[in-house]
Design a binder for these strands. Structure first.
Lengths: 292, 292
DNA sequence: AGGAGCTATAGACCACGTCTATGACTAATA
DNA sequence: TATTAGTCATAGACGTGGTCTATAGCTCCT
């Protein structure tokens, strides 16, 4: 036995208001429709659910038992509908982003702050990892979107290109003599170089660039965070390879200056990755919209 | 926002089976109907609920949230439908009967035993009281049916006449000399009479009978239970006014004998009362059917 | 390349749910 | 007692929306 669940909605309101007429008003129906619906339900069970009298209706013993179930059921549905509305309005929900720590700090932070201020009900989950890890997270459905350096080639992913970033070499006061000089790559190699750890994409890119000019780039120091790259350069421990946009403060203040090279380091882009052919949550698409 | 609740049934099965095709089978629909229903639900929320792929469908983050509500709701409805079926089959439920203790013991007991054996899932509630109390219980909806002595005149009640009962005077061995004598009322009054307590209908009826013949019936002893009427008569404390059918055992055994009178005591009927214009529960109507 | 799954889309159709109009009843008025 | 205003039930007409069939598009597997 399986009823049209619409009938339970009608039953709920009839029982709740104690009146078919009132139920009809609540449901934007006419009274005969409600009467008919209740009759259908009663016939389907072979059980009378209401006593009818001139003041309205009252649940029978069996009707009361039915109501005890249906009431809970209807309340759950109402909660579900409210919850869906909240998700839609971005009053509730969660946004799971994967990326590198440096991109979170230097690129995404202002957007995250803004988004959180606009939608305080949405919980933010930030997962850091290397590019392949981020891609794996995406494919496992553990994050909604990933933010990494381009280029990304993966047929399962959609990648939106975001701002351009320019990597460069920077030094502190200790190497002031290089400020107005244009260096060649082999000249640069005379100085101690500080690079990010081996498996990063930026590190691989610059190593390849040197290789393509017949040079071998061997760092004096390897560090695991962008902040240390900056800090070590300031302290004069060497020349750091960093993203210009991430050291704009230090460059403006004069704490660091950019080394001019006679070769052009190709710029890179930030890419926002999502799963291709998977619908985005309204939260995720709103966030992407904000970033672009 | 208020959806057609049928859509939630479809959503539930689609989520549960992870396949629109399977959901369609479970619901005896075609796959396009299910596809359409899910689309309607998604459009109504403005939220994508499922990822579609070539193996079937999988809930999105938001779909999972919706499912957590809808699953509970649907399970409650299933339980409700099962419960209604159980009530209908008399596998479950309750039957509330009002009556006097003596009628329960001497008239209803075998029916109650039989009914309980057939429908062990149904809880029996027996409420004893005087006839006006029973009627009040009925009108308050505290009992489903009342079993009392006729006649009952109440326009709000339906009364079904059941078996006939014959009241009579009985005595024990102490008054053996009356065994083959036909007594007149005034002769009877020479002996100590034991009656049921003042407000009973049987007591009122016999008092009126004596009055209509110009006699005043004044009991030597008044008792509050039929068992005591019988016991006192056996012990020779007087002549008890009892219902013949309730002392058939004692009459057969010779512990008591019936006093023959020169006037006929009108028989009375047992009446089964229910509320007029109030539908009977299937349980109650089944029981009444059994009794008649 | 072909087959066997899956879901989506288009368009036709008809049952069923809704409506209006009315009746029957009750309770509380005048 | 008659009136009125509120119940719910019933009958019958109407039209929409849910369901169907047919088909396309896609992915995966042989």
């Amino acid at each position: 036995m399986t009823n049209n669940y619409e009938l339970y909605k009608v039953f709920y309101w009839a029982a709740k208001t104690g009146s078919l007429t009132q139920a009809a008003k609540a449901l934007f129906l006419t009274q005969p429709s409600v009467s008919h619906a209740i009759k259908q339900l009663e016939d389907s069970f072979g059980i009378t659910l209401f006593y009818r009298n001139s003041k309205g209706v009252a649940l029978t013993q069996e009707g009361t038992i039915l109501y005890s179930y249906i009431e809970k059921s209807q309340i759950l549905i109402s909660l579900a509908e409210e919850k869906m509305a909240a998700l839609k309005n971005l009053d509730s929900g969660e946004l799971r982003i994967g990326g590198s720590d440096s991109l979170f700090k230097h690129y995404l932070l202002p957007y995250l702050e803004d988004f959180h201020k606009r939608h305080p009900g949405i919980r933010l989950h930030l997962n850091h990892g290397t590019t392949p890890e981020i891609i794996a997270f995406l494919k496992e459905g553990r994050i909604d979107l990933g933010v990494v350096r381009m280029p990304i080639v993966d047929s399962q992913l959609d990648v939106r290109e975001s701002i351009q970033l320019q990597d460069c070499f920077v030094a502190g006061a200790r190497y002031a003599e290089l400020k107005d000089v244009v260096l060649s790559l082999d000249m640069l190699l005379q100085y101690p170089v500080i690079l990010f750890s081996r498996n990063s994409r930026a590190r691989m890119a610059i190593t390849e660039l040197f290789q393509s000019y017949g040079h071998k780039l061997k760092p004096e120091i390897e560090v695991g965070s962008v902040d240390l790259l900056i800090e070590f350069a300031r302290k004069g421990l060497g020349i750091s390879y960093v993203t210009r946009e991430f050291v704009s403060k230090e460059l403006d203040e004069g704490a660091l200056f950019e080394i001019q090279l006679d070769v052009r380091i190709p710029p890179s882009h930030v890419g926002i990755m999502t799963m291709r052919n998977m619908p985005l949550s309204s939260t995720a698409s709103r966030f992407i919209e904000l970033v672009r």
